[in-house]
């Protein structure tokens, strides 16, 4: 699913707060710095879509009552 402009805006704002020392490693695509993640989100490519999807899925999870079940 393609991210909406609002979703992209939300995620870019969140990415701006990401510490500069961290990298995100995405499978065989490798590791991405904060600046690189921002570029991918702006480019709306596969990596960017994954980043937006992950952030939005997380934010939308707060609507669920069983978002973090502990089973053991």
């Amino acid at each position: 699913m393609t991210a909406t402009p609002d979703e992209i805006r939300i995620v870019l704002t969140r990415l701006e707060c990401m510490p500069a020392n961290l990298k995100l490693y995405v499978g065989d695509a490798g590791g991405f710095s904060k600046e690189e993640l921002i570029e991918h989100v702006k480019a709306k490519d596969e990596i960017g879509e994954l980043i937006v999807s992950a952030h939005m899925r997380y934010l939308q999870s707060f609507k669920k009552t069983d978002r973090l079940p502990i089973t053991v």
Partner: peptide
């Protein structure tokens, strides 16, 4: 904690 904000979506993912 900006670190928490940065990684929480991917722990959830």
């Amino acid at each position: 904690n900006p670190t928490a904000q940065a990684i929480l979506p991917f722990l959830y993912y």
